[in-house]
């Protein structure tokens, strides 16, 4: 280019570009490491933030429902015990 100062016509520039702009292969270790990193990141991103919020909300509702049910069962048991106690007292009073 510099040495013989040949005329740079369109064909010559295209020829120079073809000689200089050649495909480069990235190193195989870079390609495989990056692939592994990308796939691992995706593996760690199974739960999206919305999915996480949905799961948390479901867990809270489930726990509240279970606690409500347990409370009702306890109240029913207490009521039953109270009823049985009153019946026992009433039958004692009648026999006396």
């Amino acid at each position: 280019m510099t040495a013989n100062r040949q005329r740079l016509d369109r064909k010559r520039i295209e020829q120079l570009l073809e000689e200089s702009l050649i495909p480069i292969e990235p190193s195989s270790s870079f390609v495989s490491d990056l692939r592994a990193r990308l796939v691992t990141v995706r593996g760690g991103q199974v739960l999206s933030p919305w999915m996480l919020i949905l799961i948390l909300a479901s867990v809270v509702i489930f726990i509240a429902s279970v606690l409500g049910l347990v409370l009702r069962v306890l109240l029913a048991l207490l009521g039953l015990v109270g009823l049985m106690e009153r019946r026992r007292r009433d039958s004692k009073a009648l026999s006396a």
């Binding site: 495909p23 990056l34 796939v39």
Partner: peptide, 22 residues
């Protein structure tokens, strides 16, 4: 699907690398 993304990566990584390198 990470495997599908991996396939896309395999197809395009060299050309993107070349583009950025130049």
């Amino acid at each position: 699907d990470s495997e599908a993304f991996g396939e896309l990566y395999n197809r395009h990584v060299t050309r993107i690398y070349n583009y950025i390198y130049y």
